[in-house]
């Protein structure tokens, strides 16, 4: 049953705190998994979604802030709610700049916590949807031949067939054939759609 529940991960070195927080979150109907260090969270094989991470900003070893950075570098997307303490303002600013959902100064109210979790989970759903879409598009793009990819990038740039042929030293006819193939492969009907796909896939318009 818990497979279908939204997931909340908690990373906190303070057992007394994460135990209490776990109780609140569980009682709100979420699945919870706790970790007492950043390292043990990093060794987690598969992060479930929708989910969010409740993270103590200050821990011995790898700090919460460092964990946030590591996750980003690894391309792992999970919304983070930071638990902060007295005198953590400079760290909190860094965390927010790095895209944290919000921060909870200790001691915090359960309502605030649960509200933030809801916000985080909503964001995660959107993020995941976008990521899925991106993955799907990237998959479509991956079946294009190198030539077709070149042509696509130039189309997105706004070039006409004639210009593309000149640029790639091809005949206009050949360009047209490539365009036909790629619109078929990508299942798009217009140039506008093609441009949107390119944006979603973060496709650089350079050759």
């Amino acid at each position: 049953m818990s497979k279908n529940l939204p997931f909340v991960y908690i990373v906190d070195d303070e057992e007394s705190v994460f135990k209490a927080v776990t109780r609140i979150i569980k009682s709100a109907g979420y699945a919870v998994e706790t970790f007492n260090s950043a390292n043990s969270f990093l060794s987690l094989q598969d992060i479930k979604h929708p989910s969010c991470l409740v993270l103590d900003i200050r821990m011995p070893g790898i700090s919460g802030l460092a964990l946030q950075e590591t996750l980003q570098n690894k391309g792992i997307f999970i919304p983070i709610i930071f638990i902060t303490g007295h005198g953590d303002i400079p760290m909190t600013v860094k965390a927010m700049k790095a895209g944290a959902i919000d921060f909870l100064p200790k001691p915090f109210d359960q309502k605030t916590l649960l509200d933030l979790i809801r916000v985080a989970l909503t964001k995660d759903k959107l993020d995941q949807k976008r990521l899925n879409e991106k993955a799907k598009i990237q998959e479509l793009i991956s079946v294009l031949s190198p030539r077709e990819l070149q042509v696509m990038k130039l189309v997105i740039k706004g070039m006409l067939n004639k210009q593309i042929a000149q640029e790639l030293k091809l005949s206009i006819k050949t360009v047209k054939i490539h365009r036909g193939h790629l619109t078929q492969k990508l299942q798009v009907k217009s140039v506008a759609e093609l441009v949107r796909l390119g944006q979603l896939a973060n496709l650089k318009s350079s050759v």
Binding site: E14, R23, I24, S27, H86, G87, K106, P107, F108, L113
Partner: peptide, 28 residues
Amino acid sequence: ASSLAHEINQPLTAILSNAQAAQRILSQ
């Protein structure tokens, strides 16, 4: 003093969260 505030905040957080968890459980 700031580290002491931190030191006391820790159990305070546990106490508040536990108490509120208890309230939630009781309302079930």
